[in-house]
Measured scan of single mutants.
Amino acid sequence: NQASVVANQLIPINTALTLAMMRSEVVTPVGIPAEDIPRLVSMQVNRAVPLGTTLMPDMVKGYA
């Protein structure tokens, strides 16, 4: 099963992502692949992401 990127904390809108904000977890539906975590660092979210939410490509500016 593919691990996805999950929010490790509440991430406010327009926040630049850091490693501490993300974790890898096997979830359904599948979100951004966990191997993309290094690429996500310093990218901004375009909405508030609650703790435990799977990051989807449309939630991260410049990812999709």
Rank of each mutant, 00 (worst) to 15 (best):
N1T: 15
Q2C: 13
Q2F: 11
Q2R: 03
A3V: 09
A3Q: 06
A3Y: 12
A3F: 12
S4P: 01
S4T: 13
V5P: 02
V5L: 05
V5E: 00
V5D: 01
V6A: 04
V6G: 01
V6F: 02
A7P: 02
A7H: 01
A7Y: 01
N8P: 02
N8A: 11
N8Q: 08
N8E: 12
Q9P: 01
Q9W: 15
Q9C: 04
I11H: 00
I11F: 02
I11A: 01
I11L: 11
P12V: 11
P12N: 13
P12K: 14
P12E: 07
P12H: 10
P12C: 11
P12Q: 15
I13D: 12
N14T: 06
N14D: 13
N14C: 08
N14I: 03
N14K: 05
T15W: 14
T15R: 06
T15I: 06
T15Q: 15
T15E: 09
T15G: 05
A16R: 06
L17V: 05
T18A: 11
T18Y: 06
T18R: 11
T18E: 04
L19R: 07
L19I: 08
L19T: 14
A20R: 13
A20H: 12
A20F: 15
A20E: 14
A20G: 06
M21Q: 04
M21T: 04
M21A: 05
M21F: 12
M21Y: 05
M22D: 00
M22Q: 01
R23S: 12
S24L: 08
S24V: 09
S24Y: 09
S24H: 15
E25C: 05
E25T: 09
E25V: 05
E25N: 14
E25A: 06
V26H: 06
V26P: 10
V27Q: 05
T28G: 06
T28H: 06
P29I: 10
P29N: 12
P29Q: 06
P29L: 07
P29C: 15
V30C: 03
V30D: 13
V30F: 15
V30E: 15
G31R: 02
G31H: 01
I32Y: 02
I32E: 00
I32S: 01
I32V: 12
P33W: 08
A34E: 14
A34Q: 07
A34N: 06
A34M: 08
A34G: 07
D36Q: 09
D36T: 12
D36R: 05
I37M: 14
I37T: 06
I37R: 14
I37H: 03
I37Y: 02
P38A: 09
P38H: 13
P38G: 15
P38I: 09
P38K: 12
R39D: 03
R39Q: 05
R39C: 05
R39E: 04
L40K: 01
L40C: 03
L40V: 09
L40D: 00
L40G: 00
V41Y: 08
V41S: 07
V41I: 13
V41A: 08
V41L: 15
S42G: 15
S42R: 06
S42Q: 13
S42E: 07
S42C: 06
S42W: 14
M43Y: 15
M43K: 07
M43I: 04
Q44V: 07
Q44Y: 14
Q44E: 06
Q44I: 11
Q44F: 14
Q44G: 05
Q44A: 13
V45G: 01
V45Q: 00
N46Y: 12
N46L: 13
N46T: 12
N46C: 06
N46F: 14
N46Q: 14
R47V: 12
R47A: 09
R47P: 02
A48S: 13
A48R: 11
V49W: 02
V49D: 01
V49C: 03
P50H: 13
P50E: 07
P50I: 05
P50V: 09
L51T: 13
L51A: 10
L51R: 07
L51S: 12
G52C: 05
G52Y: 06
G52Q: 05
G52H: 11
G52A: 10
T53G: 13
T53P: 01
T53D: 08
T53L: 10
L55F: 09
M56P: 02
P57M: 10
D58A: 05
D58R: 07
D58T: 13
M59F: 09
M59S: 06
V60A: 02
V60T: 02
K61D: 04
K61M: 09
G62L: 11
G62E: 13
Y63L: 05
A64Y: 03
A64G: 12
